[in-house]
Simulated scan of single mutants.
Amino acid sequence: MRKRTRWLLSLGVLALGSWFLYRENNIIDVSQVTVASSRLPEAFNGYRVVQVADLHGKAFGNEQQRLLKKINQAEPDLIVMTGDLIDSRRNGEEAALTLMKALVDRYPVYFVTGNHEVRLNLTILPKLEQLGVTVLRNESRVIEYQGQSFSLLGIDDPTTTRWREGLSEPDGIRQSLDQALQDVSPDAFQLLLAHRPEYKSLYAERSVDLVL
């Protein structure tokens, strides 16, 4: 009886683990967050930003139709992709470019690098730019809407400066942030795109209004 119980328990754990892995790699979850700020111009009341991150070359249905359906249902005004669009082990460039091409046909799309783009020597960046994606590499853009604006900043993954300039990741992030903020008005609402959530305390040092 005890052996049977152990087998049933083992099979149950295996089944749950298999379902978890399947779900994490195949089910598309959508989280909605409302951000309020007195620094955000009134024109952006109800403005929708869809953030997509860490796809790692994954394809969701034929021609990315499952993922595109979810994004389109959100009716975004702006799309931001915060890194690891591809994967350094299995690449997935074709699926990534299929998605981005479909998005730029309908929306303004902005991208910052993740560590997997860096591992593949950033070779996908010219292809994204050719499609019409705006790649932010330690720089900013003014996003205009109904006569008002905010500043959108984007920084490289810190492996870029760690590998190429020998900086520690925190120092590399500080350098990247300083470059991105060079032309940004302190009076503007500042939305920062970055790949690494674990460095949120460093982003807070520069007093940006919102980090994705």
Results as ranks from 00 to 15, higher is better:
61 G>T: 08
81 M>R: 14
61 G>V: 07
121 N>C: 01
83 G>P: 09
61 G>E: 13
107 Y>G: 02
65 Q>K: 08
57 G>K: 06
77 D>G: 11
61 G>Y: 05
75 E>W: 00
122 L>N: 01
124 I>L: 08
81 M>F: 15
102 A>V: 03
65 Q>I: 10
53 A>R: 12
85 L>K: 06
113 T>N: 08
111 F>M: 03
83 G>S: 05
73 Q>P: 00
60 F>C: 09
55 L>D: 10
124 I>R: 03
104 V>I: 12
58 K>H: 13
109 V>G: 00
110 Y>L: 07
59 A>T: 01
101 K>T: 09
91 N>S: 05
101 K>H: 15
88 S>Q: 15
100 M>Q: 14
94 E>Q: 13
85 L>Q: 05
105 D>L: 14
82 T>N: 15
88 S>R: 15
72 N>D: 14
64 Q>Y: 02
113 T>P: 07
122 L>H: 01
81 M>D: 10
96 A>Y: 10
105 D>P: 00
114 G>M: 07
107 Y>S: 01
87 D>M: 13
125 L>H: 01
89 R>A: 12
104 V>Y: 12
114 G>W: 08
100 M>G: 09
115 N>M: 02
73 Q>H: 02
122 L>G: 00
61 G>M: 07
116 H>R: 12
117 E>R: 04
59 A>I: 01
89 R>I: 09
80 V>M: 03
86 I>G: 09
125 L>D: 04
53 A>C: 12
92 G>W: 14
99 L>G: 00
117 E>I: 04
123 T>G: 04
57 G>F: 13
99 L>T: 00
68 L>G: 12
120 L>F: 00
54 D>V: 04
93 E>H: 09
87 D>A: 14
89 R>W: 14
66 R>I: 04
72 N>Q: 15
57 G>H: 13
69 K>Q: 11
94 E>R: 03
86 I>V: 15
118 V>M: 02
114 G>E: 04
124 I>E: 09
67 L>A: 09
51 Q>N: 06
112 V>W: 09
86 I>D: 11
90 R>H: 15
99 L>C: 02
97 L>I: 08
68 L>M: 11
108 P>I: 07
88 S>K: 15
69 K>D: 05
107 Y>Q: 03
84 D>L: 06
118 V>E: 00
65 Q>L: 04
87 D>I: 13
79 I>D: 00
78 L>V: 01
117 E>P: 10
102 A>L: 05
83 G>W: 11
99 L>E: 02
96 A>I: 12
101 K>C: 07
79 I>E: 01
85 L>H: 09
84 D>P: 07
125 L>N: 00
56 H>F: 12
95 A>K: 14
67 L>H: 13
65 Q>P: 00
86 I>W: 03
83 G>F: 14
68 L>W: 10
114 G>I: 06
111 F>H: 11
72 N>Y: 13
93 E>S: 08
115 N>S: 08
99 L>M: 08
89 R>F: 15
